[in-house]
Amino acid sequence: MAGEILDNKGRGEAGWDWPAIHPEGRKFGLIAVAVSLFFLLALDWELIGWPLLLLSFGVFAFFRDPERVVPQGEAAIIAPADGIVTLIEEVEPPLELQIDDGSGFPGLPNGTVTRVSIFMSVFDVHINRTPVGGTVRRVVYIPGKFMNAELDKASEENERQHILIERSDGLKIGFTQIAGLVARRIVPFVKPGDMVAKGQRVGLIRFGSRVDIYLPAGTDPKVMIGQTTIAGETVIAEIGQRGLIEGISQ
């Protein structure tokens, strides 16, 4: 199915399949299996071995990497993460995405924009994807704390990594991977200068975290607080479109 074109007129074929396990997680799963088998076979400690074996399947599930069908409309900005929308606020983008970094490529313009925060629990897919296609202009890693990623101040105090993408028309979209209470490493898949397609995998955060995306001026989100997003599939906004969207929890 990878690379196949599907549409809303019935073109293409789809079916359920076991998701792949990202290479970044295979070593952790294999270590967990090896430890559990040691307790089961070498020590015959079933009370410890069986829970560890169950945990090893959980580790593999955490690093699952399913295929996604990425909407290709020019105006569509796609969700960079699986999870729940926990914050939608008007903020100034991080300085790291605005200031002159000496690369010769300007950052985001000054002024407030809408920030959409997506919280990922340990049960969500943790592969992050780019919301637009273009050229990676910045990848800025900042060490920090590991407080609850659902808190607003986590955007400024937690370990985080900013990524700035510039489209071919010059529009720039920035987003931030933020570590949480359990997360202890942000793993990038891209570097400045790389060309990326919309919905391409750009990194992961191990074991629970959050992703913030900064929408361009004049653009309102098409998602609501409490809504679940799917990385690479959910249209989080359409460039230049504004308007209130209301939902009812039920």
Rank of each mutant, 00 (worst) to 15 (best):
E90V: 09
V113K: 07
F119V: 11
A34N: 10
S117F: 04
P23M: 03
Y214P: 12
D17E: 15
N148E: 08
I5C: 03
G240D: 06
F123T: 15
K191Q: 12
F123G: 02
D212R: 05
I178F: 01
Q250H: 11
P66A: 06
G73P: 11
L151T: 14
P109W: 04
I5V: 13
T135D: 03
P188M: 01
K145M: 13
I245W: 06
V190R: 02
G232P: 03
S56N: 06
I213P: 00
M1S: 12
L151W: 05
L244H: 14
L54S: 07
L95P: 08
S168Y: 14
D169H: 05
A231E: 08
I173Q: 00
A217C: 04
V190N: 01
E159I: 10
G134W: 03
T130N: 03
W18I: 15
K27H: 15
V211K: 10
R26M: 15
P192I: 03
F63P: 01
M147E: 15
T130D: 01
W18P: 11
V116N: 00
P71A: 08
I77M: 08
R129P: 13
I5W: 12
I213L: 10
N128H: 08
R167S: 09
L30W: 13
P71D: 09
L43Q: 05
R184M: 10
A14L: 09
P71H: 09
S155Y: 13
R167A: 11
S168G: 12
T219W: 04
S249K: 12
P109L: 07
R11E: 12
P51C: 02
E67T: 14
R138P: 09
R185P: 06
D101L: 13
A76C: 10
K153L: 15
A237C: 07
A79F: 03
A75L: 13
T114F: 08
R11F: 14
G58I: 03
L244E: 13
S56C: 08
G111V: 01
R184P: 14
L52G: 00
F146S: 11
T234S: 06
G102C: 07
R26D: 07
E90S: 10
M120S: 07
V140T: 14
S56A: 12
G83K: 09
E96Y: 06
G104F: 05
V211M: 03
G247Q: 01
G134D: 02
M120C: 08
G49I: 00
G203P: 05
R210V: 01
L37A: 01
I236Q: 04
V187P: 07
G10S: 04
F207H: 05
S155H: 06
T86K: 05
G203E: 06
E92C: 03
H126L: 00
D7S: 14
R138C: 09
G58M: 01
G102Q: 10
A42F: 02
V69R: 11
I142L: 14
L41A: 12
R11D: 09
F60W: 00
V132L: 05
K172R: 13
D194C: 05
T130P: 00
L41M: 04
A231N: 10
L97I: 04
V182Y: 07
Q250R: 15
A42C: 05
N128Y: 07
L6A: 13
L52P: 06
W18M: 12
L87V: 11
A183Y: 00
D169G: 02
K9T: 06
R185K: 11
G226N: 00
G243R: 04
T234W: 00
Q241K: 15
V196Q: 02
P188L: 02
L244A: 14
R185H: 07
E238G: 01
